[in-house]
Amino acid sequence: MAENEAQVRPPESLLQLIENLARFHREHEEYYSQAPLQQAHELQARSRVLKALADRWSEVSVGEQASAGGFTGAEDLNAPGLVAEAGVLFMEGEGEPAELQRLKREVRQVADDAEETGAWLTQAMEQAWEIAGSLAAYPALADLLGERHRIICNDWQSAALQSLVARLLRRALDLLAEVDFAPAALRTDLAGERQAPAYLHSASELLDRAADLMAESAMLVHDNERRWRVFRARVRELQSA
């Protein structure tokens, strides 16, 4: 009888490990079911900046330099309302606005973070998959193995999405690097082939898609909440038996 019970019930050391994973990984995922939503919102805001400039530069009639004095606003290059909303101000005699430089730095940081998160989570799920497979030896957990593997699959998908987000953001930065944002250079482009608006529109579309995938990543992780709760409850039940 004792031998049969040992076959059904996982050893205490394994139950302690599983309980620890269920508790702390659930808490960790509570963060990652929310943080990407904030990042998605911020990416959309940056995308709107690029769209506003692209829309403006697609239609505006290029003017001459408004003033020889420095720090004068460029009437033709500034998008209506954008200065107040995002702080992006093109000034005569200046180069690329500091706000656009900051925007690109922030996008690059999000890309770095997403790549790091995706790589770490992929490696973690490789290990989790092996551990979950070993639980099949214990009938007491058999009915929860579907839940555990679904958690892993969700996290694995989330990891892949994070890695793809990083690629999209870096490619958006590549497109922005093709544009010279100095007022004089912009006026030369807008008086000719108007390539700058096309690059900005495409970059904004990549940011939009990255934001969508960020939100999808959060949804996948959020789907694990009940599954972790059920899994941990069973483990605690076995521990107290």
Rank of each mutant, 00 (worst) to 15 (best):
R167H: 06
V179G: 03
W156P: 07
L173K: 00
A177P: 08
A177M: 05
T188E: 15
W156H: 09
R167L: 12
G192N: 08
Q162M: 10
S158Y: 02
D189N: 09
R170M: 04
E178W: 01
T188D: 14
D189S: 01
D189Y: 02
A182D: 13
A184Q: 13
S158P: 06
R170E: 12
S163W: 11
L164Q: 13
D180S: 12
A184E: 14
V165I: 15
G192D: 13
E178F: 02
R187I: 10
D174S: 12
A159H: 00
R187P: 07
W156I: 01
A191R: 14
L190W: 05
Q157H: 15
A160R: 15
E178H: 08
A172Q: 08
L164R: 14
L161V: 04
A191V: 07
R170H: 02
L190K: 08
D180K: 08
L164V: 10
L169D: 13
S158D: 00
Q157T: 14
A177Q: 12
A191G: 15
S163M: 10
P183L: 05
L173E: 11
E178I: 00
R167M: 09
A182M: 08
L190E: 10
A166R: 05
P183M: 04
V179A: 04
R167A: 10
R167I: 10
L186P: 00
D174V: 14
L190I: 10
A185H: 05
L173A: 05
L175Q: 11
D174F: 14
F181P: 01
D189K: 03
A184Y: 01
A184I: 00
D189F: 01
P183N: 04
Q162D: 11
D180W: 11
A172F: 00
A182F: 02
A184K: 12
L164E: 15
R187G: 07
L161D: 07
D189M: 00
Q157E: 14
F181D: 04
W156G: 14
R167Y: 07
A182R: 05
A177T: 10
A182S: 10
A160Q: 15
D189I: 06
F181K: 05
L168Y: 14
R171V: 01
A159P: 07
A160G: 07
L169N: 05
A160D: 11
L169T: 08
Q162R: 12
T188G: 15
A182V: 08
A159R: 02
S163T: 02
D174E: 15
S163N: 11
F181C: 02
S158G: 15
Q162P: 05
W156C: 04
L161N: 05
R170D: 11
